[in-house]
């Protein structure tokens, strides 16, 4: 597999074409003890952007993620994969996945060399190839930044 094919794995191309969670949804459950937050993130160098909304249960788990965005296949597929990954996850698990994904993006194409970590990241390990291209790492991290910021804005991080 060429480095280009390592970067654009089929799972990434599929998520870019058929994204999960795309289309912002209102969160009517907000008044049942849920917390919601929204974040808009822009990558000023290439114009990629994402607006992401998160819904957190009173127990401190991600009830739902929805988003709108436009940008390259890496940025859009990464938000999509992340959405599938974190839905239903407790906030502590979301924080762990965020840390693991950042580690993966710093691995310069080597991956995490940790089966448990790669199992936890699931489809997100497909972005290993992206970490060989310094200019594209920020594309893959855009959605994760939006998730972290929207969680902070929801107030869920302070209470849990």
């Amino acid at each position: 597999m060429s480095t280009l094919e390592q970067m654009y794995q089929q799972v990434i191309l599929d998520h870019a074409k058929h994204p999960v969670g795309r289309g912002l949804v209102d969160v009517p459950s907000a008044d049942h003890g849920h917390l919601t937050g929204e974040s808009h993130q822009v990558n000023p160098t290439c114009g990629d952007e994402v607006t992401l909304r998160v819904d957190v249960t009173p127990e401190g788990a991600v009830a739902g993620v929805s988003w709108e965005g436009q940008g390259c296949s890496i940025s859009q597929a990464s938000v999509s994969v992340m959405t599938s990954l974190v839905e239903g996850a407790p906030l502590a698990e979301v924080a762990r996945l965020d840390g693991l994904f950042h580690d993966l993006m710093s691995s310069r194409g080597k991956g995490l060399d940790d089966d448990d970590a790669e199992d936890a990241l699931g489809d997100a390990t497909a972005f290993t190839g992206v970490s060989q291209y310094p200019a594209r790492i920020k594309c893959a991290l855009l959605g994760w930044a939006a998730l972290k910021d929207s969680l902070a804005r929801s107030g869920a991080l302070a209470t849990n």
């Binding site: 280009l4 940008g71 390259c72 296949s73 594209r136």
Partner: peptide
């Protein structure tokens, strides 16, 4: 159907260097 950044990446894979983005002209884009 293909974002400029992805276009640039495929060209780069063949050794072809082009610029991608808004080229410091957001209003024009």
């Amino acid at each position: 159907g293909v974002h400029a950044h992805d276009v640039g990446q495929v060209l780069d894979d063949k050794g072809i260097a082009v610029r991608v983005g808004h080229h410091c002209a957001q209003p024009l884009h």
